[in-house]
Write a protein that binds this DNA or RNA. Structure first.
Lengths: 249, 249
DNA sequence: CCCCAATGGCCTGATTCCAGACCATTGAAG
DNA sequence: CTTCAATGGTCTGGAATCAGGCCATTGGGG
């Protein structure tokens, strides 16, 4: 019967896999949990920060308040979040990023399985393209200042915040393209790799290299040099991927 | 109150827009209709072709058979599709691509609105990156042959099939990256622009230029020359975008 | 001190969507 | 001619999700 199945695949063949992929990402509740968790792990909200109010968050996520609350309850039971009632209350983050650990890294990689190469390729294409696109745009003074402040935030980061600020820096470049779809895709790609990236032990030498590459990226983008922005981003992502593969080998 | 809203946006600010985008793309039924329609317009299924059986299609789209059938009923009423019962029956495509029309083009562009630039940027980043990624991979003889056959299909295409075969060609490059996510993203980007692209009048001169650019892309990918693949794709997409903007101006 | 606006907590009815079963039809294979 | 496997056509019960309202709590402002 496997052969029969295989023949069916071949008959459809083509890119049917891309076109006929699932319409809905399964469960609204689980998807909501995942989104919130990723928002926290990505550093959009740090320890002690308040999430948007339930009603607003539900609207943004396109989900009913009931479903959102179910997700928040799950996160609460997992100890990631804590609700407080009353005016000036809200849902507050109680999650702290665990220290990097090679065992976690290997486990996360195993969980991803064959999707690892997929995610790395996807990320590479999106972020390299975004850097080039951002460089070729005319950026407003606000946008330029925003990018620079993301970079200085990152360079002065204490170790426990480094990963989150690194995420914010990379997401900021996506935003500079002016394409919401592209920014969202970059966020999604990074979410997939996030557990992996967060588990990479941080060596001073690597951080210094990364800082140089970050500066090169920002410099090229601000100078409007698309080619340089692309090359710098390529180099940076290749280094990260190599580091990752090194710990997995 | 608008000011209050604006201040809220600023407080969240960041990439919250990317992270807290809607979880579900609204309605499962409507989304299914859209997907099937795009699959047909994209040329995955031509006139007279049979769609996969309902049970299989429902499984692939991650939707219940009831929902899928509701979508098919809608497409049937729109005259795009026709069901036949019995063994060796199925759902058959009765849609024919309308002739390109500048009025349609302007209407489609108006429907897209501000999302047009977004979609063009997204497409550019994805397809340029995919071409480079495909070129840098080691392709199997099957893959190489597949790409070449897509190109020859396109070059020998009668006008009424040109757009569909053009789509297939571009989607094939996405598949060559080996990243299903990237291939899916390219399909999605193209779906958004599809009504626009299909409405562009085809001038012999443009078709010849496009054919040259296609050959350059294939040549570079098969030669493993990433830089050349990127440049050729960049040029091709820039030409298409310029053509588009020309008709809209 | 009291009020009240903003927040989380809770409930209900309606709607959408799903999983699975069963029926009706058809045409090729035996 | 009969069989039968694959297909579309139909139905039902239940789960998930939504829309909206109302309640309980809280702390700052009057």
């Amino acid at each position: 019967m496997d052969l029969e199945e295989a023949r069916k695949q071949a008959r459809l063949g083509w890119q049917a896999g891309a076109i006929f992929r699932p319409v809905r990402t399964g469960n609204a509740f689980e998807e909501t949990v995942e989104r919130l968790l990723q928002a926290i792990k990505l550093g959009v909200f740090g320890f002690g920060d308040r999430l948007p109010a339930e009603r607003e968050l539900a609207a943004r996520l396109g989900v009913s308040r009931e479903t959102l609350r179910e997700a928040l309850r799950t996160l609460q039971q997992a100890g990631c979040v804590e609700p407080r009632r009353g005016r000036y209350g809200g849902t507050f983050v109680t999650y702290r990023m665990p220290a990097p650990d090679v065992a976690d890294l290997r486990r996360a990689a195993r969980d991803l399985g064959g999707a690892l190469e997929d995610a790395l390729t996807y990320r590479q294409v999106l972020e390299v393209g975004a850097a080039e696109a951002a460089a070729r745009r005319t950026l407003s003074p606000d946008q330029r200042a925003h990018l620079e402040s993301r970079l200085t935030d990152l360079e002065g980061a204490p170790p426990e915040q480094y990963r989150q600020l690194d995420s914010r820096f990379h997401l900021a470049i996506g935003e500079l393209t002016g394409s919401p779809t592209l920014a969202a895709a970059i966020a999604e790609a990074r979410m997939r790799l996030n557990d992996l990236l967060n588990a990479i032990p941080m060596l001073d030498r690597n951080i210094e290299h990364a800082a140089e590459q970050h500066r090169a990226m920002v410099g090229a983008i601000l100078a409007g040099d698309g080619d340089a922005a692309r090359r710098a981003t390529e180099e940076h992502l290749a280094a990260t991927a190599a580091l990752l593969r090194g710990f997995l080998a």
